[in-house]
């Protein structure tokens, strides 16, 4: 077998891209979508890095390496922000998926949403978690 060393990794990268794309489209939970998105990104990096390794070269090309490192750091920044958003989404009474994904899905559940809203008026407090705070503030008053 005379396969160049980059070939299995390039194929692996192509496979990861498809796998991540599938997870991004077909997984309902937002956390799993972010995970799948990271798998897809890692696949793109691997394909890119493997393709840069083709030909008769003595050492790996530093330019793609630098670009991939930049990409990894940008990916983790975006992931951190996306994860903070889905936690806030769930904290605000949203589901672990998006409401638009399914007709009738993503219903707000009944865990104390309404009394928090009555109490806070237009204030965009996070329900559920805020109930305790509201009670405490009420007691302090």
């Amino acid at each position: 077998m005379n396969l160049p060393i980059w070939m299995p990794y390039a194929l692996c990268g192509a496979g990861l891209i498809g796998l991540g794309l599938y997870g991004l489209l077909a997984r309902p939970q937002l956390l799993r979508r972010i995970l799948a998105f990271n798998v897809m990104g890692a696949g793109i990096f691997l394909l890119f890095g493997a393709l840069a390794r083709r030909g008769e070269i003595a050492y790996a090309d530093p330019v793609p390496q630098a670009m991939i490192i930049t990409g990894i750091v940008v990916a983790v920044s975006a992931t951190a922000l996306a994860l903070a958003l889905i936690v806030a989404h769930a904290g605000a009474g949203g589901g672990e998926g998006l409401p638009s994904d399914t007709p009738g899905g993503g219903k707000r559940d009944e865990r104390g949403d309404d009394d928090a809203r009555d109490d806070a008026g237009h204030d965009r407090r996070i329900p559920g978690r805020d109930r305790r705070r509201n009670e405490r503030e009420g007691a302090a008053r």
């Binding site: 077909a26 309902p28 939970q29 937002l30 956390l31 972010i34 995970l35 990271n38 990916a75 983790v76 992931t79 951190a80 994860l83 903070a84 889905i86 936690v87 769930a90 904290g91 949203g94 589901g95 672990e96 998926g97 998006l98 994904d101 399914t102 899905g105 993503g106 219903k107 707000r108 559940d109 865990r111 559920g128 978690r129």
Partner: peptide, 24 residues
């Protein structure tokens, strides 16, 4: 780092008990 971020987010989501996302 991404692993820690995912683990932390998962434990917070779990504590909030969001309604389950229906399968597509």
């Amino acid at each position: 780092l991404t692993g820690v971020l995912l683990l932390v987010a998962r434990s917070r989501l779990k504590a909030l008990e969001p309604p389950l996302a229906p399968a597509p």
